[in-house]
């Protein structure tokens, strides 16, 4: 349930803002709408939030699919919507009331490639794509595009399918090319099995992937074979900035020792970004404060520093690169993302 952490972050943001006197003399109230993970229900409760509850803005949904259903409704009604999690296409394209505050792969991957080339001195990358997985296909293409002109050569470009168990052929091909790192754009199950085969064949390179690898199951399935494997994420509670450290401490105090993650942080930022836009616009009218939201620059959020670019897509820094160490994901590096 990714709604719960998002909601907890939102509630905490509202409490913090209200404790500091509110915005333009008004208190913030969070109105909950449970879409039960269903697109039809998502459309229905979005309509209710707007017409029955008279919300002026919506934070959500964390998924691309339901955000794509809710966004046209919000746009038509002139209510600002900011998704705190959707990374797929078809979200902000709905119009000038629609935003998101999550780090996109198209922004994260170039930053990772710079880090690999400049800090880790990687020169050769092998790519593995799951070609029956749209996300993997798109993510690999993002990587290929971003690698151009960065001094990194793609020495192998292998294909698998989600659900495959035998990767001996692909690893044999990759082994011959001696890559510095294996970029896998798919999910943790296949990722773990690929790395087991890689170690079996004596491949020394570690795996790198997106949040599709970030799961305890990746470590459980892969065991020692995934030690050193890396996953790029938009948030880590480790090495926190002063703003993030304050948020983590207060969150843990409020929610019985719970350490906040990506969704709690992005839910929190969704509300504080709306409050910031209202304050700068000096108006609670979405038609007015949407322009202030679009002009957001270097906003010091708890999930990073956020700038909204033309097209209402965010750019955030830093990117958190996590690596498996002693059987757990741990922060390897905070990679700066270019904000211009």
């Amino acid at each position: 349930m990714f709604g719960k952490p998002t909601l907890e972050g939102m509630k905490m943001a509202a409490d913090d803002i209200n404790a500091a006197g509110g915005i333009l003399g008004k208190k913030i109230e969070i109105v909950e709408a449970d879409n039960r993970g269903d697109k039809q229900e998502g459309a229905s409760v979005t309509q209710k939030l707007i017409s029955r509850d008279n919300v002026i803005a919506i934070v959500g949904d964390p998924t691309t699919g339901i955000t794509k259903v809710a966004a046209p409704i919000a746009q038509k009604a002139g209510v600002l919507l900011i998704s705190a999690g959707a990374t797929g296409p078809g979200v902000v394209e709905n119009g000038d009331f629609i935003f998101r505050n999550t780090l996109l792969d198209s922004v994260a991957i170039p930053a990772c490639i710079d880090y690999f080339a400049n800090d880790l001195k990687y020169k050769k990358v092998a790519i593995i794509t799951s070609d029956n997985n749209d996300y993997s296909v798109g993510f690999s293409q993002t990587f290929r595009d971003a690698a151009k002109g960065k001094g990194i050569t793609i020495v192998a470009d292998e294909k698998i399918k989600d659900g495959d168990k035998d990767f001996s052929g692909q690893i044999t091909n990759i082994k011959a090319k001696k890559p510095d790192v294996i970029f896998f754009s798919g999910y943790y199950t296949e990722g773990a099995l690929i790395m087991k085969e890689a170690r079996k064949q004596g491949v020394k390179a570690n795996m790198f992937g997106g949040d599709g690898l970030f799961s305890p199951e990746f470590i459980k399935l892969g065991g020692s074979a995934v030690e050193g494997s890396m996953s790029a994420l938009g948030f880590s509670p480790e090495q926190a900035s002063p703003e993030t450290a304050k948020f983590i401490e207060a969150f843990s105090k409020k929610f019985a020792g719970q350490v906040p993650g990506l969704f709690e942080a992005q839910g929190y930022d969704g509300v504080t970004m709306i409050a910031d836009a209202i304050k700068r616009a000096n108006s609670v009218d979405p038609k007015v404060f949407k322009d202030a939201m679009a002009a957001t620059k270097n906003f010091q959020g708890v999930s990073g520093t956020i700038t909204i670019r033309p097209g209402r897509e965010p750019i955030k820094t830093p990117l958190c690169l996590l690596a498996v160490k002693d059987g757990k994901f741990a922060l390897k590096a905070k990679v700066p993302v270019k904000m211009d």
């Binding site: 349930m1 709604g3 208190k27 913030i28 109230e29 909950e32 993970g37 979005t46 919506i58 509300v271």
Partner: peptide
């Protein structure tokens, strides 16, 4: 006197 912000997400059901 209140600024209402909606939360849209799955709290129950299969997400």
């Amino acid at each position: 006197d209140t600024i209402k912000i909606g939360f849209l997400g799955a709290l129950t059901g299969d997400t």
